[in-house]
Structures are given as structure tokens and as C-alpha cells.
Nucleic acid binder design. Sequence first.
DNA 1: CCCATAAAAGACATTGATATCTTTTTAATA
DNA 2: TATTAAAAAGATATCAATGTCTTTTATGGG
Lengths: 147, 147
Amino acid sequence: MFLSKSFGYALRGVLYIALVDKEGRKVQLDEIAEKLSVPRHFLAKIMKMMVKEGILSSTKGPYGGFYLNEVTLKTKLIQLVKITDGVEQFNICVLSLRKCNSKNPCPLHFQMLKLRDGMLAEFSAKKLGDLLDEKNPDFIKTISTIA
Amino acid sequence: MFLSKSFGYALRGVLYIALVDKEGRKVQLDEIAEKLSVPRHFLAKIMKMMVKEGILSSTKGPYGGFYLNEVTLKTKLIQLVKITDGVEQFNICVLSLRKCNSKNPCPLHFQMLKLRDGMLAEFSAKKLGDLLDEKNPDFIKTISTIA
DNA sequence: CCCATAAAAGACATTGATATCTTTTTAATA
DNA sequence: TATTAAAAAGATATCAATGTCTTTTATGGG
Ligand code: FES
Ligand code: FES
């Protein structure tokens, strides 16, 4: 609705890695792309960004792949937005006018503000780990079924 | 943030027309485009859509222009979204997965649902007329100042 | 009836997000 | 150290949203 596809790919990618992490193995790009039905090369770009930002780890070479690190599951959703879309997302005027602020509100400003702050609060509170439903054997489906 | 620029242009265009309507005159495209700093031809396309949908009127030729009709100010915001972006906007999964529904929720579904329903409620309740602050002499500024 | 004006219509251009492909670097292990 | 697997890097392609330009149609006034 307002987050980019990149954000969705990133989130789903991490969650998938977290799932197989329980089996104690790394995951390679091809596997993630295939299981999630996501374009391989585009996903590569996004995974790379997360690695660079440190919320995920990877090793190259044979038996390489992506894997969780200490911070992965503690990472806030807002952090992921920051990486893929930029937090400005949360401070853009709904009418594409000036930077949104209450001193100089557009006609929809106050209607939007409450809703947007709610969203921001959610994203600032929730961690990646909170989204992982380890009890649900079909969890994989909830991140892989497309349109 | 999640509504297109088209929506913003449409809304601002109508509000501008409503403002000068008090002076009892029609408004021509050039004037709206200039006052709102919006690309002329693109605005034309959007105004045309609103006319076709009947929430705004226009006449061609000399002394022609756009003007309010009986339904304009009673039009709900959601109706405007329908015209410019389509209401599906409000039913898209935030992760670009399947069509969003609670039977088959993505990991962010329930976090988003409440917020989105709030937004939908707002847009279904508010009318264009509700946004018009006729008491504010600087209202024009609140719809014209860009980024 | 003719002219000028302005909206309607639609062809065309630009841009940014998304997606693909190719080359380079790194790392395991034989 | 040679081989090879896989991520990193970056060049290129596609597509939809946004924006521009040109032609057509309708209208009012002379
Ligand atoms: S100024 Fe428009 S949403 Fe805040
Ligand atoms: S299924 Fe993803 S937001 Fe509802």
C-alpha cells in the first residue's frame, strides 16, 4: 500500500532465512528466490543491502550463503524501512506538498497524522523476530504465496 | 505516502475551484495549474476524469472553465481515490502478496489492518466540503505550497 | 457564419521503481 | 595453488506512473 516491493522482499527474505536457520544451515540466494517466487537478481540486490547494514550476514564461496546474526531478529521493522525505502516515507505529505508538519498543515494533515503516527509506532516497536510464527507449520506459506 | 500525486492534484484542484467559486466565477485550467504549481497538461487529464465522473463540471469555449456542481462538495474523499487511484489501494497487502484478507494473513496483516481500516473510515466519512476552510484567509497557501 | 478560446482527447516523452544479465571478488577444499 | 561455488558489484532492460505536446471538439461573440 505504501511500502515498496523491495521492503516486502527484504522482510520475506529474512523471515525465510530465520525459518531454515532452525535447521542450522545457511541459505543461498537461489533457494530463497525460488521458495518465495521473487526475482533472483533483484533479491540479490536487496539482500546485499541488508548485509551491508549489518542486520544479516553472508559468506561467499562454496557452502556460502546468508544467515542470521545476533542483531537480525532484534531488528525493528522501521530499520528495514530505512534500508529499503528510507524513513522519509513516514514524513511525506499525503498531498505531495511541502514536508509534512503541523505548523503548516495541508487540508488532510490532521486526518493523516494520527494514522501515520500509529503506523510509525508499530514499526518502531515490532522486531523481525516478533513476526516469526515458529509454531505455525505453514508459516512458510504466509510469506511465499503471491497475488 | 500511499496516494498518487494524481489524487493530490485532483483534491487541490477541486479545492481551488471551490475557493474562487465564492467569487461566482469559473476557473480555467491555466489559472489552476499556475496557482497550484502543477503541470498543466497532466492536471488537464485529471480534471477531465473528475468531470467525466460528474463530481465537477466544465464548459468549453471562451469564458469556459471548470466550476462546482451540486455534488462536488458532498463528494466523499474515497470517491476521489476511486477516480484517481482505485479503491483497491485499500485492499492491497503491504507485502505485495496475495490480495489482503484475514483468512490468509501475511506476517504484517493484523498490524496493518487496524490502521488501514481507520484510514478507510476517514476517507469514507470526509467530504470535499469538509476540507474547505473558508475562514482561513490563507487557505490558498495550504493547497499551493510545494515541497 | 466565422473567429477565437478553452476543454477534450489522445499521442508521445520522461522518470523512477523494478527486474535481469554479466563480470568481479571471495572463500572452501582438494 | 587450482578449481569452483557463491555472493558482490554494477551495467543494462522493462514497465508503470508521471508529465508534455498536438490535434480535435465545443462554445460564445462578433
Ligand atoms: S502537511 Fe499534508 S499530510 Fe501533513
Ligand atoms: S495479507 Fe498482507 S496486509 Fe493483509
